[in-house]
Amino acid sequence: MDTMVQTVPQRATAMDSLGCSTASLSADHVLCTEGLTFRRKSAAGTYRSRVATPAQDRGLLVGVSLVDGHHRRGGEARRRQDRIFDRGDIYIRDFDEDYAAELDGSFDFFLIELSTGFLDNAEQITDRGRGRDLTRVQGKRDQILRHLAQALLPALAQPGEFDPLFVEQMAMAIGAHLLHQHRSAPTGAAGPEACPLPPLAIRRAKDMLMSDDGERPSIGNIAEALNLSRHGFFRAFRDSTGVTPYQWVLNQRIDHARRLLATTDLSLVEIALTCGFSDQSHFTRVFGRIEGASPGRWRERAR
């Protein structure tokens, strides 16, 4: 199944799906991928409120604080706590229990909603056995997850400007990190170590990544075509090429752009669209990061 990245519209009501009042939120972003929903919720100043969500069949919620000093009192009925969350502190809780908490002070949280099927399909992410679960924690420090969250924040704010392949790759990294770092009672035998793909498989994967049939490439589809898990394909492709699938696609687009800049009079907008970038701004940003010069300046030097 293709990964679909979309912005989820917020309801025009006082409370959101996490039981949080939307009136005082300074950031309220949502981004969906297969099995994971990412959110950013923040409020500045002396924000005081109460959040409450009834028990529901919805999976797990992971929250990572992006700032210091958020004070929260409450939780599930059996695990009520009074805690201050600093930058990089996380919590993992179930949706299948009633939850209520008092929020005191400003906050900025990156939230990951794991669907009920996420853990059931964990072996498709990690290659290391079925039946995995996550430890429920409150206030545990995880700076790696915070850095992964920070990398995804721009895509939450402006999802239309980011390649779905990048978002899918980041979602895989976050899911794999959670399963490796916060697992509890893993079961099943360890899977095989990743090994380089054979030349025919590499060629097929590259052809699919560069397909121009109008559909965005999906790591899940390519992995299925090669009879691998998503994470297994990701690691094997990286071991074979030295770069991730998304980085490889970017390199191909930049190579194509360099050729067009040097040998044609196409405008930057035309080159951007021809090479698969969403617009000229996206092209200029990526090209400048890789080449150290804007496309226009690079063209002047090349000629």
Rank of each mutant, 00 (worst) to 15 (best):
D2C: 14
T3M: 15
M4R: 14
V8M: 15
R11P: 04
M15G: 07
S17T: 15
S17C: 15
S21W: 11
T22Y: 04
A23K: 10
H29K: 07
T33A: 11
L36Y: 06
T37C: 12
F38H: 00
R39M: 15
K41L: 07
A43T: 09
A44W: 07
Y47S: 05
T53Y: 12
G59Y: 00
L66S: 13
V67K: 02
R73F: 13
G74D: 02
R80C: 12
Q81C: 15
Q81F: 09
D89A: 09
D96G: 02
D98N: 13
A100P: 04
F109E: 03
I112W: 01
T116L: 10
E123D: 13
Q124T: 07
I125N: 01
V137K: 03
G139V: 05
K140M: 14
L145Y: 01
A155R: 01
L156N: 00
E161A: 14
Q169K: 05
A173Q: 11
I174E: 02
H177R: 10
L178D: 01
L178K: 00
H182W: 13
S184G: 13
A185M: 15
T187K: 12
T187C: 13
P192Q: 15
L197K: 01
D207E: 11
P217C: 09
G220I: 06
L226Q: 02
N227E: 14
L228K: 08
F234R: 04
R235M: 09
S240W: 03
S240D: 13
T241L: 15
T244C: 04
T244A: 13
V249S: 05
Q252D: 09
D255F: 09
L260P: 03
L261Y: 00
D265L: 11
L268A: 06
S278Q: 14
Q280P: 07
T284E: 11
G288D: 05
A293W: 14
A293I: 14
P295D: 01
W298G: 00
W298C: 01
A302D: 12
